[in-house]
Amino acid sequence: MCVFFLTVSAATTSAQPVHEPARGSIERKAILNTIRPLMEARLGAPVEFVVFWMRSGGDWAFAGLDPQRPGGGRINLQNTVYAGQGDYMDGLHTYALLRYQYDRWNIIDFVVGPTDVFWQGDPLYARIPPGLTPH
């Protein structure tokens, strides 16, 4: 008796063009659930996200998020690891670069509250598919 398993991973979809993972999709949930523990460690739990940018292509993904408390509650910066840094941040806007490796999404780079377009000119971002980050 032969049994065959079909495993679908980012590696099998590497030829796919950059796309926005659909709301409610397994891919979108997996990306957000990869980012969530990092943000909850820095901002306190629980955290949910308002997604203002998300693209995936091949084995890469890039997300732009605004973290909030469940139901839309505002996160008080003074109750986070960023207390006292508000003057140097553009709020809690969060960006994360992820890569699908070892059968899961992994955070490769992230930043909270950047005041510039940090990915432009960074050699790491020259390796990702065009269209993954905002212009």
Rank of each mutant, 00 (worst) to 15 (best):
S56E: 13
R42C: 01
N79L: 10
A15T: 11
Y100T: 03
N76T: 10
V51S: 01
V8K: 13
G131R: 07
S14W: 12
A96D: 00
L32H: 01
R23F: 09
Y82A: 04
Y125K: 01
L124M: 11
I26M: 13
Y88E: 15
V112K: 05
R23D: 14
F52T: 09
Y102E: 14
P134L: 07
P123C: 05
H135Y: 13
R99M: 08
I108L: 14
V47K: 04
G71P: 03
S9I: 07
Q101M: 13
A83Y: 10
P129C: 09
C2T: 14
A126S: 13
T94H: 05
S25Q: 05
F5T: 06
A41G: 13
A15S: 15
T34G: 08
L92F: 02
A22L: 14
P130H: 09
T94M: 04
Y100R: 09
A61S: 11
F49V: 07
P129I: 05
G58I: 06
R23I: 06
M39D: 03
L97W: 00
V111R: 08
D90L: 12
V81I: 11
F49K: 01
G71L: 03
N76K: 15
P114E: 09
Y100G: 03
A15K: 13
L77T: 03
F118T: 08
L6R: 12
D103Y: 15
D87Y: 08
H93C: 03
L6Q: 11
Q68Y: 04
M1D: 08
V112I: 11
R28C: 05
N106T: 11
E27D: 10
P114G: 07
Y82N: 06
D116K: 11
P67M: 06
I26P: 04
N79V: 00
R127G: 12
V112G: 02
D59A: 14
P37F: 08
D87C: 08
F49C: 00
I35S: 03
R23S: 12
G64E: 02
A30Y: 05
R42E: 11
R36M: 13
I107G: 05
T7W: 12
G131K: 05
E27H: 07
F52V: 00
M39Y: 05
G131S: 03
I35Y: 06
G72E: 00
D122M: 02
P130A: 09
R99K: 14
T80H: 02
A41L: 14
A30M: 09
D122V: 05
T115C: 13
A45S: 10
A61I: 04
S56H: 11
G72Q: 04
G86A: 15
Q78I: 08
I35R: 00
C2W: 12
M39V: 01
R42G: 04
G72C: 00
D87F: 12
A96Y: 02
A61V: 02
P46A: 03
L98H: 02
T133I: 15
P123Q: 01
G64P: 03
P130Y: 10
